[in-house]
Every structure is written in structure tokens, then in C-alpha cells.
Nucleic acid binder design. Structure first.
Lengths: 165, 165
DNA sequence: CACAATTAAGTTGTGCACAACTAAATGGCG
DNA sequence: CGCCATTTAGTTGTGCACAACTTAATTGTG
């Protein structure tokens, strides 16, 4: 369908806005889940889910982190991470132990098995990248757009329905 | 961090691939969830979750559909849709009834209340678009990239770990 | 018509995301 | 020191995504 053009400050009919919105949120949602599906297949060998893989990536890079820091890297809170880390620990890939210096903090680090898994994970990015059909430059470009989008969305001051300005 | 360049067919160190991959999957995941957060706030007024809103968008556009068709529009199966539709029905927004012509099929259509909700939903896209900080052209462009990505990911023949080509 | 294969919806179980809450430890401040 | 606000994990409850399965209706084929 050819995209209609609304030059300048011209407003779009409400029905079209709803259709446009549909396109955008559908496509983002669909892309995200399509990605998830590909990761699921690729990560099956490693016995990891996609979010677990993300956690392991951070741990491979940083070695050991408190749950809090892990959550900052991943934008996840303890409500998501606690059970996930428990499963990773049950799988023998990480160890969790209370920090002696600050008993509130729990430090997470990969076990030997967890570190060893990295060897088998190095091929994952290549396979994923291949599945996208995008070249490196396109992926980098898309990444930067998505990061810009995320920053904007996080910082967005949502206008009220019927405002107190 | 300045992006390193690897011209031609030159291979990238495995560690860098893992880092790059982190960037891409992190950014997609983060963008998707950031979007979800904004929708959550905006849709709170309407009493809808984000996936419920997507369902209502399809129903507003098509009026009445069997669960199967709904799933094709949304790339969702009955395992996701059945409970979601049950909640929408409990909220009085849709009705579900077995098709007389084909007793396997359940047709879903918005109730009067469901149709009426559309009036209050028309402002949603504008608020979301505003929160992204992107203009219409940028959003359209991003959408087309994401659709291309989804198509590629869906059709991807994932190379085996150690393949029988 | 009988019967196997297919199709549609729903159910069950696992895992993730997130809000709201609890519990315990820490850090200030009077 | 005593006490309270803050910080860090964890828990609980709801909802979504998806795989695997069940049930029932339909279709195709001999």
C-alpha cells in the first residue's frame, strides 16, 4: 500500500493514525518475537533461553557482578532476575553468594562450566547475524536507531489525557 | 565507543562478535520493552494491556474475525489468544461465539462497549508517536526496516552447528 | 458410509516482564 | 547510641509467549 503523504503540519485522519500505529507497534512487536524465535533455536544447543543468554553475555564480559549491576546492564529488576538466576544456578552455570562487605548484595559469577559455555557461544552472533540477512553496517545503523528510540521513550514525558499542563 | 571497521571479507575477533551481538540484541530487546512501558502508561486509562490493545486494533479494523484469523494478523496462536480473549470478554469488550457454519471456529467481535472504546483510543497513536521523538518519515522508515528484518528472520534457514548442509 | 488426516480452539506447563510488596542490612542524623 | 530512610534481594500475583498436548469438528479418500 502506497504511503500517503501529509505535508507540513497537516493533520492525519484519526483512522489513519490508528492504522499507522498498528503498523508500527505490530512491526516492532513482530520483529522482537521473530528475533526471539531465532535465538530460541540457536540457543537450544546451549540449553539457554534468550534472557539467560543475555545474562551470560554480561557475566562473560564482566566476570562477576551484584544482581543490581546486572539489572542495570539489562534493564531488569530483581523480580525478573532472581528466579532467572536461580535457574542458571540450578543449571550449574553461575554461583550466587552474599557479599561479605555488604550483606544486602548478592554477587553472581559464572562457574567453570559457565565460563566454558562461552566457547560454544561465540558462534551464536554470526548465526544470528546471518539469519537477519543484514550486513554489519545495516545492523549497526538499526542498533543506533533503536537506542535512540529507547532513550526517547525512557525520557518521554507523556502528555496527560486531558491535561493539567 | 568508536565502531571498529573490518573492511572486505576480513573476519572480526570472536570477542568483538559477542560484544556486537550484545549491542544488537540488547537494543532490540530494550526498545521493545521501552515501547511496552510507554504503551502501558498510555493504555492504563483504557484498561487495556498492550497485547489486548493490538487485538482491539484488529477488531476495530475488521469488525469480526475467527480466532485463527486474529492470530494470523498478530502472529499469535490460540495458546496466547484464548486466555487473552477470555479476559477481554470478561471486561465486556468482546463476545466470542462458535460459528454455526463451522463448529470448530470461534468468531470474536467487539461489543458495543468495545466499539465505543475506539473513540478513546484514537489519541493513543499520537501520544506514542510523540513519545518516540521520531517524525512520521523516521517511523515509517524504521517500520519498513523492522518488517524486512522480520521477514528475513522468519524465512531464515538456520545453519546447523556442525552441518549436514 | 467408514475412517484417517487435518484443522480450530483450548489446556497445561515453563519462563519472562513487571508492579507491588516484604525482609534484611546499611547509612545518616540527632 | 537509637532510630529512621534508603538500598538490595527476594516473593507474590497477573499477564503474555510459546511448546506440547487434548478435544472436537471437518475434510478427504477409498
Amino acid at each position: 500500500m502506497a504511503p500517503k503523504r501529509y505535508p507540513g503540519g497537516m493533520t492525519m485522519p484519526a483512522a489513519d493514525w490508528l492504522r499507522l500505529d498498528q503498523q508500527i507497534c505490530f512491526s516492532l512487536n513482530a520483529a522482537s518475537r521473530a528475533f526471539g524465535g531465532v535465538y530460541r533455536v540457536v540457543l537450544k544447543d546451549l540449553g539457554l533461553t534468550y534472557p539467560q543468554y543475555l545474562v551470560m553475555l554480561v557475566l562473560w564480559e564482566h566476570g562477576e557482578l551484584p544482581v543490581k549491576k546486572l539489572g542495570e546492564h539489562l534493564r531488569l529488576d530483581s523480580g525478573t532476575l532472581s528466579p532467572l538466576l536461580k535457574r542458571l544456578e540450578a543449571a550449574g552455570l553461575v554461583r550466587r553468594e552474599r557479599s561479605a562487605r555488604d550483606e544486602r548484595s548478592v554477587r553472581v559469577r559464572p562457574t567453570g562450566e559457565g565460563v566454558a559455555l562461552r566457547e560454544r557461544a561465540v558462534e551464536v552472533p554470526r548465526r544470528i547475524a546471518a539469519a537477519t540477512g543484514f550486513d554489519l553496517a545495516e545492523l549497526q545503523d538499526l542498533r543506533s536507531r533503536l537506542e535512540r528510540l529507547t532513550t526517547a521513550l525512557d525520557g518521554a514525558e507523556l502528555p496527560e489525557t486531558a491535561g493539567r499542563g
